[in-house]
Design a protein around this nucleic acid. Structure first.
Length: 288
DNA sequence: TTCTTTGTTCCGGA
DNA sequence: GTCCGGAACAAAGA
């Protein structure tokens, strides 16, 4: 599923391809996503130019002329495909196949004014597309409660101590808390705690400064690394037209139930448990 | 049939 | 009153 690095890569890819273009029309095949799509979407964005594209947490914001912003979230299985009509030469061509992949889940098709179309495909329909007013972004209910971006300077030792030290939560839950730090999903929280050699059940109150420094360091490190790898995997794919933004990652702990710990010096076993309804993987030996 | 996934909301207990 | 964790919900596929 798309995690923060994938969303960042999708944002960058869209930025390179669709800025300064305008929408010619929008076709809604299915309006029942996480939220019902505004039935006037076509009317609202047709002939509007795309000015800029931002990411906040795992949300993508496409800012248009006239104070219009498309706020979108990919949920679990959302993807954007950018399909260039000029490159589809035959039904056996790569671009044709891409544009017809999982076609029944192509819920929204945005036609752009350069003969390309941006397809929103979402198997599980947990994502959404909303229209909001650009000037009200900071007041939006999805965005206003979010904590700092994990890659920003605001997410630092001082912030962690100030915001978390009086809480009773365990480590896993505080890192999953979107109002504490925005955009870390289940997979990355598992990976960060493994890299930090810290147990997901450990109470925040029992952390020392060294632990907190490790968490912050590894959070930034793994996100940056994944963004770079995602960027290069798209590059190696030789186009961003068909790339769905979800790239195969090498996870060190997530999904490795009953397998050996991936750290060279550790011969522990990775165990799976459930914390707040989310699958949690950790090494019973090195994560203390 | 059951399990999985995310973000959000609701609820009961501390 | 507030904080916390667990349950439920949406959809579809394995």
């Amino acid at each position: 599923m798309p995690e923060l690095p994938e969303v960042e890569v999708v944002k960058k890819s869209l930025k390179n391809k669709i800025i300064d273009l305008s929408f010619r029309k929008v076709l809604i095949n299915t309006n029942k996503l996480r939220y019902t799509i505004n039935k006037d979407l076509n009317k609202i964005i047709t002939n509007k130019k795309i000015l800029s594209i931002d990411r906040r947490s795992k949300y993508i914001l496409i800012n248009l002329e006239k104070n219009i912003t498309i706020l979108t979230h990919l949920g679990m299985t959302g993807k954007f495909f950018l399909v260039d009509k000029k490159k589809i030469h035959s039904k056996t061509s790569f671009y044709y196949k891409i544009s017809n992949r999982d076609k029944k889940h192509n819920h929204v098709i945005f036609f752009l004014n350069n003969d390309t179309k941006l397809i929103y495909n979402d198997i599980r329909k947990f994502g959404f597309i909303k229209i909001i007013s650009t000037k009200d972004i900071s007041k939006n209910k999805h965005l206003e409660t979010l904590g700092p971006e994990p890659l920003s300077k605001k997410f630092n030792l001082g912030y962690f101590e100030k915001k978390a030290s009086n809480k009773k939560k365990n480590l896993k839950n505080i890192l999953m808390d979107q109002s504490f730090v925005a955009g870390l999903g289940n997979i990355y929280v598992n990976e960060i705690l493994h890299l930090s050699s810290l147990n997901p059940y450990k109470s925040i109150k029992k952390l020392d400064i060294k632990d907190v420094k490790k968490i912050i360091y590894f959070t930034k490190k793994i996100l940056k690394k994944s963004i770079l790898e995602g960027g290069s995997s798209i590059k190696n794919f030789n186009n961003s037209d068909g790339k769905d933004g979800v790239f195969q990652q090498q996870f060190k702990v997530y999904g490795r139930n009953n397998k050996k710990c991936t750290k060279n010096y550790c011969k522990g076993i990775i165990k799976k448990s459930i914390i707040s309804n989310r699958s949690t993987f950790y090494c019973i030996r090195c994560q203390k």
